[in-house]
Amino acid sequence: MPGLYLAALLFSLAGVALTDARLKLAAWRDPRRTIIAVVLGTVFFLIWDAVGIATGVFVKGDSPLLLGIDLAPHLPLEEPVFLIFLSYLALVLHGAAMRLRALRAGRRPVSGQGGESAV
């Protein structure tokens, strides 16, 4: 079924965006920095892909799940969408890890209870 991979990527991207919107981990906390980071990450990995394609390391396989639209030889339309998803997901996961770290750092042993800590 052509386009299924792209649909799965967009569905997953929407899920990450909804999580981000609810918890304000990246784009909903600082949209400008998030956009810059996603663009830089995507461009970096597209350059990485171009080098890999030029050296023959990366080749596009045949899959009925791809739309069949190539932006360049061995670079399907789905690749930049995947790289956007990857970069955004990394930022959201980083934001979640930093929030969890801050929450854990905020918990201190409760004094007066026999040295037990509130965990």
Rank of each mutant, 00 (worst) to 15 (best):
S87I: 01
F85R: 03
L89M: 10
T55S: 14
L89S: 09
P73S: 13
S12P: 04
W48N: 05
P109V: 14
D70Y: 12
D20S: 08
T19Q: 08
W28C: 11
F11R: 00
P64A: 13
G112Y: 11
L13V: 06
L65C: 00
Y5A: 05
F11L: 13
G41P: 01
S111E: 15
G112T: 12
A54L: 13
D62I: 05
I69A: 07
L93R: 03
A37T: 02
A7I: 07
S87W: 02
I69S: 03
V39L: 13
Q113N: 15
V39P: 00
Y5K: 02
W48C: 06
G61Q: 05
F58G: 04
H74C: 08
G95D: 03
V57K: 11
L46C: 11
R22A: 15
D70I: 02
I47L: 15
D49W: 03
T19L: 15
R29A: 09
V38D: 04
P73M: 09
D62Q: 10
D20N: 11
Q113P: 00
I69V: 15
A102K: 11
I69Q: 04
L67Q: 02
S12Y: 01
I35P: 01
A21P: 00
P2L: 02
G61H: 10
L10T: 04
R104P: 00
P2S: 04
P64C: 06
V110Y: 08
P2I: 01
S111A: 15
S12R: 01
S117N: 08
R104G: 13
K60I: 01
L67N: 05
G106S: 12
Y5R: 07
A97R: 09
Y88F: 15
A8L: 15
P31Q: 08
L18G: 10
I69H: 05
V57N: 06
W28K: 03
A105P: 00
G114S: 08
D62G: 14
A54N: 10
R99W: 04
Y88S: 01
L86G: 00
P80W: 03
A26K: 04
F58R: 02
D30E: 13
L103K: 08
H94E: 11
Y88R: 06
V39N: 01
V57Q: 05
E79M: 06
W48V: 07
D62A: 12
P73T: 14
H74T: 10
M1T: 05
I36S: 02
A37L: 08
V119K: 07
I53R: 07
F82C: 02
L67M: 13
G3H: 11
